[in-house]
Protein backbone atom coordinates (compact mmCIF):
# COMPACT_ATOMS: atom_id res chain seq x y z
CA UNK A 1 0.00 0.00 0.00
CA UNK A 2 2.76 2.40 0.89
CA UNK A 3 4.54 1.52 -2.35
CA UNK A 4 1.38 2.33 -4.25
CA UNK A 5 0.96 5.62 -2.40
CA UNK A 6 4.58 6.60 -3.01
CA UNK A 7 4.36 5.78 -6.73
CA UNK A 8 1.12 7.76 -6.90
CA UNK A 9 2.81 10.74 -5.30
CA UNK A 10 5.75 10.58 -7.69
CA UNK A 11 3.24 10.66 -10.52
CA UNK A 12 1.40 13.63 -9.03
CA UNK A 13 4.69 15.47 -8.47
CA UNK A 14 5.58 14.77 -12.11
CA UNK A 15 2.29 16.23 -13.30
CA UNK A 16 2.79 19.33 -11.20
CA UNK A 17 6.47 19.93 -11.84
CA UNK A 18 7.30 19.20 -15.44
CA UNK A 19 6.54 21.47 -18.38
CA UNK A 20 6.94 18.82 -21.07
CA UNK A 21 3.47 17.52 -21.78
CA UNK A 22 4.77 14.10 -22.85
CA UNK A 23 6.42 13.66 -19.46
CA UNK A 24 3.16 14.73 -17.86
CA UNK A 25 1.35 11.98 -19.75
CA UNK A 26 3.94 9.47 -18.57
CA UNK A 27 3.33 10.66 -15.01
CA UNK A 28 -0.36 9.96 -15.51
CA UNK A 29 0.57 6.43 -16.58
CA UNK A 30 2.57 6.10 -13.36
CA UNK A 31 -0.48 7.16 -11.35
CA UNK A 32 -2.65 4.58 -13.11
CA UNK A 33 0.00 1.95 -12.42
CA UNK A 34 -0.09 2.84 -8.75
CA UNK A 35 -3.84 2.32 -8.75
CA UNK A 36 -3.36 -1.05 -10.44
CA UNK A 37 -0.80 -2.15 -7.87
CA UNK A 38 -3.27 -1.26 -5.15
CA UNK A 39 -6.05 -3.25 -6.80
CA UNK A 40 -3.86 -6.30 -7.32
CA UNK A 41 -2.52 -6.11 -3.77
CA UNK A 42 -6.06 -6.17 -2.38
CA UNK A 43 -6.94 -8.97 -4.76
CA UNK A 44 -4.02 -10.95 -3.34
CA UNK A 45 -4.90 -10.12 0.23
CA UNK A 46 -8.55 -11.11 -0.11
CA UNK A 47 -7.93 -13.94 -2.59
CA UNK A 48 -10.60 -12.44 -4.81
CA UNK A 49 -10.23 -12.08 -8.57
CA UNK A 50 -12.40 -8.97 -8.89
CA UNK A 51 -9.48 -6.65 -8.20
CA UNK A 52 -7.55 -8.07 -11.12
CA UNK A 53 -10.58 -7.68 -13.41
CA UNK A 54 -10.79 -4.03 -12.45
CA UNK A 55 -7.07 -3.66 -13.07
CA UNK A 56 -7.65 -4.95 -16.61
CA UNK A 57 -10.32 -2.28 -17.11
CA UNK A 58 -7.91 0.35 -15.80
CA UNK A 59 -5.31 -0.80 -18.34
CA UNK A 60 -7.87 -0.58 -21.16
CA UNK A 61 -8.87 2.93 -20.15
CA UNK A 62 -5.20 3.93 -19.84
CA UNK A 63 -4.52 2.69 -23.37
CA UNK A 64 -7.48 4.66 -24.72
CA UNK A 65 -6.39 7.75 -22.81
CA UNK A 66 -2.83 7.48 -24.08
CA UNK A 67 -3.97 7.14 -27.70
CA UNK A 68 -6.32 10.12 -27.59
CA UNK A 69 -3.95 12.24 -25.50
CA UNK A 70 -1.01 11.66 -27.79
CA UNK A 71 -3.25 12.41 -30.78
CA UNK A 72 -4.12 15.73 -29.17
CA UNK A 73 -0.43 16.43 -28.53
CA UNK A 74 0.40 15.76 -32.18
CA UNK A 75 -2.41 17.97 -33.45
CA UNK A 76 -1.38 20.74 -31.07
CA UNK A 77 2.29 20.45 -31.98
CA UNK A 78 1.42 20.73 -35.65
CA UNK A 79 -0.41 23.97 -35.01
CA UNK A 80 1.75 25.60 -32.37
CA UNK A 81 5.21 24.02 -32.67
CA UNK A 82 5.52 23.59 -28.92
CA UNK A 83 4.87 20.96 -26.27
CA UNK A 84 5.36 23.33 -23.36
CA UNK A 85 2.20 23.46 -21.29
CA UNK A 86 2.88 27.05 -20.25
CA UNK A 87 2.35 28.09 -23.86
CA UNK A 88 -0.86 26.11 -24.19
CA UNK A 89 -3.18 28.96 -23.38
CA UNK A 90 -5.32 28.64 -26.48
CA UNK A 91 -8.46 28.02 -24.45
CA UNK A 92 -7.68 30.53 -21.72
CA UNK A 93 -10.61 32.80 -21.09
Amino acid sequence: MLLSAALFMIGVAGVLLRRNIIVIFMSIELILNAVNINLVAFSYQLQNGVGQVFAIFVIAVAAAEAAVGLGIILAFYRNKETINIDEMNLMRW
Binding site: V40, S43, A62, A66, L70, I73
Partner: peptide, 29 residues
Amino acid sequence: LTAQFLAAIQVLVYAGGIVVLYLFVVMLV
Protein backbone atom coordinates in the same frame (compact mmCIF):
# COMPACT_ATOMS: atom_id res chain seq x y z
CA LEU B 1 1.19 -11.09 -6.14
CA THR B 2 -0.02 -14.18 -8.10
CA ALA B 3 -1.58 -12.15 -10.90
CA GLN B 4 0.21 -13.83 -13.78
CA PHE B 5 -2.39 -12.96 -16.41
CA LEU B 6 -2.25 -9.31 -15.45
CA ALA B 7 1.54 -9.42 -15.61
CA ALA B 8 1.36 -10.71 -19.17
CA ILE B 9 -1.17 -8.01 -20.07
CA GLN B 10 1.06 -5.40 -18.46
CA VAL B 11 4.05 -6.44 -20.56
CA LEU B 12 2.02 -6.66 -23.77
CA VAL B 13 -0.08 -3.51 -23.46
CA TYR B 14 2.14 -1.16 -21.50
CA ALA B 15 5.70 -2.17 -22.26
CA GLY B 16 4.77 -3.19 -25.81
CA GLY B 17 2.01 -0.89 -26.99
CA ILE B 18 1.79 2.30 -25.01
CA VAL B 19 5.54 2.83 -24.81
CA VAL B 20 5.91 2.44 -28.58
CA LEU B 21 3.16 5.03 -28.94
CA TYR B 22 5.07 7.40 -26.66
CA LEU B 23 8.30 6.84 -28.54
CA PHE B 24 6.55 7.57 -31.84
CA VAL B 25 5.25 10.86 -30.51
CA VAL B 26 8.62 11.80 -29.01
CA MET B 27 10.28 11.15 -32.36
CA LEU B 28 7.60 12.99 -34.34
CA VAL B 29 7.70 16.00 -32.07
